[in-house]
Structures are given as structure tokens and as C-alpha cells.
Nucleic acid binder design. Sequence first.
DNA 1: ATTCAATGCATCC
DNA 2: TGGATGCCCTTGAA
Length: 569
Amino acid sequence: MMTRGRSSAFPKVVIERDTESEESSSSDDEGEDGPEPETSEEEEGEEKEQEGEGLPERGSGDGKEETLADAKKKGKAPITISLKKVCKVCKKPGHEAGFKGATYIDCPMKPCFLCKMPGHTTMACPHRVASEHGVAPAPHRNTQNPVEYVFERQLIPRTRQCKPAYVIPNQVSCAVIRYHSRRVTCLEFHPRNNNLLLSGDKKGQLGVWDFDKVSEKVVYGTIHSCILNNMRFNPTNDGMIYSSSSDGTISYTDLETGISSSLMNLNPDGWQGPSSWRMLYGMDVNAERGLVLVADTAGLLYLVDTRSNNETGRAVLIHKKGSKVVGLHCNPVQPDLLLSCGNDHFARIWDMRKLEAGGSLYNLAHKRVVNSAYFSPMSGTKILTTAQDNRLRIWDSIFGDMDSPSREIVHSHDFNRHLTPFRAEWDPKDSSETLAVVGCYISENFNGTALHPIDFIDTGTGQLVAEVMDPNITTISPVNKLHPRDDVLASGSSRSLFIWRPKEKSDFVEKKEERKILFCGKAEKKKPGKNVGNESEDDSDCDGFNSKGKRSKFSKKELICKSKRKVKR
DNA sequence: ATTCAATGCATCC
DNA sequence: TGGATGCCCTTGAA
């Protein structure tokens, strides 16, 4: 427990004891001797309570000698501190939230952490156990305006008439690498080289990893000075990438040399304080128009000509003034359609020919911040959004309308300041345009280990089709990307990167509507031993992981982790 | 084993 | 509108 100096300028502290809870708390303390008023547990509660009262500092325990009279004499209002055990979430006594083993116990005073509805906890949430969720199918739209005409005439003919089933492997292997020193923020597969994965991190570094040779990687550290938010390949030269960053620049980088030039800098005068600093988040490349589109934290969209590498036209306010635009996506078949999303709780569809503030074609309303919005990869007729209200939404321009989503899927992907925001992404290979991948925030107790799966969701039904996890990987994977051609999933989890592949081609199974498939790595997770110092991997089937489930060699060498068997829940 | 801190950002007043 | 506030399942280093 930390000891701090006392400041006499602050009110005195009066401790309110609760004998009943004192007894119970000491009995909780794993067979400690008799009631002891200064258990660390109690002090922790005391500290928290005090912070809640806004008292910055206090003495280390002698506050108990202060009395109400003392405090009154000195003209300070006394602060009463409870020694009762309190819930760390709601600060109320009588219950405690947090992990009990590998199971997280919710605070009952708060709405469900998963679906955000009051009256039940995450454990009892119907969305946690149901394999399918979703709103009623959207009503048929009426075709009145010109955009709908464009949709009907140009996009509908490109959609597949019958829906082929995607296939899911039932075993995966996982390659692991760690070269980022801060958490991973974005991933991108090379458009031609099947084994090349690009990764950006919070520090602004860019990693290039040949995951087939595993050990072949390069890290470029000077492209950006802070968060690398998005990157895209130059459609006419796949040796070059564009990247947007919170340092306010777009960099144009040669992947071979790491030499980059800055196409744009929103902070030419450097740091003038937080109010004037601009960051670039959403970015995409419009190949047909030869443009890099990028949007900032003020709600503005900028266009950069890829031929001259200069900004073109004027910045357009596309989201609420002063709000961050986190995502931009150009329609894959209709280059005049642009999708944006941001912190003003909207995803918006734009006509590139008529870009002006307030001139969006559609505004897709969400209950909270929209982390990402993507057109479906082949026809571009559907939109998948990830919002911080723990819902994935599908907006269908053909079979639904743009006034309301055609489906909402409750899924845990909350905001947390320590995590890269979750983004659900389409499977670019799924011609039925239904399969999506997204990381999961809440954990599941899996053989005694709390694991955070990567979920595959059939957006057509809301069904959770598969969950990918490995008992050795206990961290959350908010960043996920499916390979454009191969059956490969890349994940960014904290500072590590993972490549998941089917163990063998023959392992593929047809999609099954009623069955939730779970596949993962080593199924037998051994209980953590007492002798933590033992780094032996003798009893491990998984290179780089020891039997304690600790990642012992991540930073020392690159690893391949083989999955063992399929596990059903 | 436990503690700490990084330092983003939505929301509230 | 802008500054203060406070954060429910983090992560990894000390």
C-alpha cells in the first residue's frame, strides 16, 4: 500500500466501521488470524472511497485517530469513510464484481455489460448463450430517389443469385510474432504477395512480416510519430503504401526501403497544445478517381491526388464539426459512393460528385460511436458497421432501406481506452457477402482460462458460426483481417500478431446452420503451477509457450504454434 | 503475487 | 463550448 504525505489543507477523515462486514471480510481473508482492522483489503476499500469523495491525499492509516470534533474545530467538513467491502464497479457494499477464477462476475447494479440492458448480468444475458440474434427483417424499400436508381441499375445485376455456403475449417494453427513495442492498431495484407502482412502500431511504426518464412520481418520506425490509424496500398504500385496517423500526416512509404514522404501535414507548426492538434484517422484510396481520401478529428474530409501527391480541392465537413471521422470506405463497384463513420454516432453515405457539408445521401444513425463501416466486398450493396453500443449492424440497400438496419447483432466489442477499437470486417472471399470477423471483448471461462475469442458471424442470420481461440493466447484481439485470397486470418492482439490458418485443407467443413463450431489451439490447458520460474517447455506441444500458459519467448524469437484438436462447447 | 502506469476519449456540466 | 472527470473483463513491466 502506498504511503503518501498528509496535506493539512484537506478535511479530516472519519472512519465509519461496520462490524458485520469487518467480520465477514476477515473471514474471507484465507484463514488469517482474528479480526484485524488494518487488512490490506480494507485499506483498499478505504482508498477507493476516498478517491470517490475527491480527496487527493491522505495519511497512511493515522486518519483513524481524527474525530468529528477535531475536524469541526478546524472548520473542515469531515469525510466519512466506510470500511465495508465495496464493489469496485459501483462502490456499493454487499457484492463484488470482478474475476472469480476465469469467470467474470458482473456488478448487478449496472446494466448487462454485453447487451446494455438492465435487469440481468452478462452471465444471464440471452445474447450470450443464444446462437442467433437479430431484429426482424427490414421492410422492402421503395425506389424513389436517384441513388436507389443507381443501386438498382448498377449494383443489383452484380449480386450473386444463389448464395454459396462459405466453408469453415475445424482446426487451425497459429503463427505468432511480436515486434511491435506498442499495441497493434491496423493490419493489411499485401494485394499480390500472399504471405506478406503489414501492421501498424500505436507508436506509428510499420511492420512488414513474411508469415510464411515467419522470421522475415522489417519494422520501420520513423514513418509516423504516433498512432498509425490506417494504411492502404497504392493500387497502381503495390510497393508503396499510404498511411494516416494521429500525428496529422499521410505518409507515402516504399515498402522495400522504408523511405517515406509526407503527402499532407495538418500540424505544420508542430505542437501548439491539444486544442489545435489535428489527427488523421479514416483513410481510403479511390483508384478510379486517383484519390487518397482522408479524414481528421475535426470532422473534415481531405482529398489528395495520387498523381501529383498534392491535396486537391477543399476540405469538406462530412461529420459533426469537431468530431472524429474514424473510417472511410469507397464502394468496391461504384466509385462515386463513399462511406464514412465517426464519433457523431453516424455512418454516412456520400456521392463523390457532390461532396459538401450536409450533403450526404444517407445518414445511418447509431446509438453510440461508430468504430467502422464497410461496404460489402463484392457488390458493395450491404454495409457492416461496428458501434460502441455493442451491436453490429447490417444495412442492406437492396432488401432493406437506409432508415434502419436490416439486422442488429449484439456482440461484445466495447470501447476501452487501452484497446484498439474493435472493427468487424467482411470476409473478402465470401461471395455470399455474409461472413464477418470481429474480436470479442468479454471472456469466456474455457477450461479454467479466461479467453477472448475471435468471432466469425453470419451476418445474414446473426449466428455465431465459429470462434477462434488458443488457450495460450489470453489477450484480446481487437484487430482482425481476413486474407483476400487465402484461408488466412490475421489478428493483432496487444503487441503481438497472429496468423491463423486451417491445419489442413481436408479439415474444412460445410457451414452448418444450427451448430456453433468452436475451434482452438491446445485444448488441454494445464493449471498454472506454483514454480513460476520454470521456463521449461518440455511438456508443451506448442513452441514458445510453456506449460504455465506464459508466453516465455515471444520477444526473443518467432514462433509457430500448432493447434491440437477441436473442442466443442 | 501485486501494483502501477500508460494517457484515449466519451460524456457531463 | 470547453474543460473536468472518470472509466466494468488491459497489458506488461517493475
